[in-house]
């Protein structure tokens, strides 16, 4: 997102468009990225319950994908994924 100049923004830091946090792609903060192993996933959706960023997309009661626009790579999903399934793996997302 291109950052705006001082003449282009509402005064005093007021947010005048409700719900515009959706434009802020916090996925850019990520260092580690969760990878989904479809073959091991049992669709228990514990990851979906724990994800603090609503970045687990579920359709018809099943895990479909991560929303990488908002996944900050915290790794809670990988930690909570049942040991026997072990369907989420954290990998380095970028060079540090």
């Amino acid at each position: 997102m291109k950052e705006k100049g001082w003449k282009e923004i509402p005064i005093g830091g007021t947010i005048v468009e409700p719900g515009n946090a959706v434009e802020y792609k916090t996925g850019s903060w990520r260092t580690f990225k969760p990878i989904w192993h479809k073959d091991r996933c049992i669709h228990c959706l514990i990851c979906w319950m724990y994800c603090p960023d609503e970045a687990i997309i579920v359709e018809n009661g099943k895990f479909v994908r991560f929303d990488y626009d908002y996944c900050k790579g915290c790794g809670i999903c990988a930690n909570e994924c049942p040991e026997k399934a072990n369907a989420i793996e954290m990998v380095l997302d970028r060079k540090i």
Partner: peptide
Amino acid sequence: VTIGPLDLQDYYFEH
């Protein structure tokens, strides 16, 4: 509207 949100390095100076 939201008045007085956190305003960090990217926009504080512009305000």
